[in-house]
């Protein structure tokens, strides 16, 4: 399959023999690595190497677009989805269709036979390079644009319409009607002001442990009056009953009880949190 009629430079040969085996390794890695992100990385490597080979064969536009579109956009979306669905989720090996492994194996062998036959029977005309065989210079973007939007304009438009339809279809299928009015910053602020008589605090809550004996997550902050502020501890911890019990000592114990008297049911103590979590269970 060595092309005749065109001398291939030594640099290009070296480039090919360095990149091609690495590409094959990465392509095999795509099949055999365990983790999905590693497989995606193998695919990215194959794509970028292919772009390098395109550029080496005097098709810079194709090479660069390969990187921008496939590596930059498509694979990035793949990675995005992989990360969103949980990166360490291992594949389930249960067969959902009966005998799908055997069917898959058969079809795979068939495809390999067809591809092998095509590759074995392919006859390449002698390579001419771009100077001899490409008078308009399809490698340069202007000539490429003329071909795409001149000779093949109908196909381009058809593909464009198809893609827009697919995008709109995806939007329509995933669309949900809004059942409740949208919460804006303004409406949230109004709701909080309205709830002021019910004991809601307008200002940001103090972090746990402010002015307290320790700054652990489960230690209530102390207010300016020396009283504990139970809301400073995460609601989850309070419901679970994991709030740190008030340390022994007259000052704090007194202040806890006064806090309970003052605000009634909105402020809680450790004991009641435990009862609540028991009630939940």
């Amino acid at each position: 399959m060595t092309p005749t009629g065109l001398e291939i430079s030594g640099g290009e040969t070296v480039l090919f023999w360095v990149i091609a085996p690495l590409m094959v390794l990465a392509a095999l890695g795509l099949l055999f690595v365990k983790r999905a992100v590693h497989a995606a990385m193998c695919l990215v490597f194959v794509m970028v190497s292919m772009a390098i080979l395109y550029i080496a064969q005097e098709a810079p536009f194709l090479g660069v677009v390969q990187v921008v579109v496939y590596t930059g956009a498509v694979m990035m979306l793949f990675l995005f989805v992989l990360m969103l669905v949980g990166v360490d989720a291992s594949d389930s090996l249960t067969e959902t269709i009966r005998g799908q492994r055997w069917i898959g194996l058969l079809i795979g062998i068939g495809l390999a036979a067809v591809l092998g036959g095509v590759v074995a029977n392919a006859a390449f005309p002698p390579a001419r390079g771009l100077e001899g065989g490409d008078p308009g210079g399809v490698a340069n973007p202007q000539a490429l644009a003329r071909v795409l939007f001149g000779d093949y304009v109908l196909a381009m438009e058809a593909v464009g319409v198809l893609l827009v339809t697919a995008a709109v279809g995806a939007l329509v299928l995933t669309h949900r009607r809004r059942l409740t009015p949208r919460k804006t910053q303004e409406s949230v602020a109004e709701a909080r002001i309205k709830a002021l008589p019910d004991g809601v605090i307008l200002t940001p809550l103090p972090s746990p442990g402010v002015y307290a004996r320790s700054n652990a997550m489960d230690t209530p902050a102390l207010g300016p009056d020396g009283e504990q502020v139970p809301q400073s501890v995460s609601r989850v911890l309070r419901i679970r009953g994991q709030e740190r019990p008030a340390p022994h000592g007259p000052a704090v114990v007194v202040s806890t009880s006064t806090a309970r008297e003052k605000t009634g049911s909105t402020r809680g103590t450790t004991a009641s949190a435990t009862t609540e979590s028991e009630r939940d269970a």
Partner: peptide
């Protein structure tokens, strides 16, 4: 310099994001 130099800049930028994405993962 080549006829698609600015597209090459975009390609390099889009590859650079892999560093951030993979680093975070």
């Amino acid at each position: 310099d080549f006829p698609v130099a600015i597209l090459y800049v975009l390609a390099a930028a889009s590859l650079g994001v892999y560093g951030i994405v993979l680093g975070g993962w």
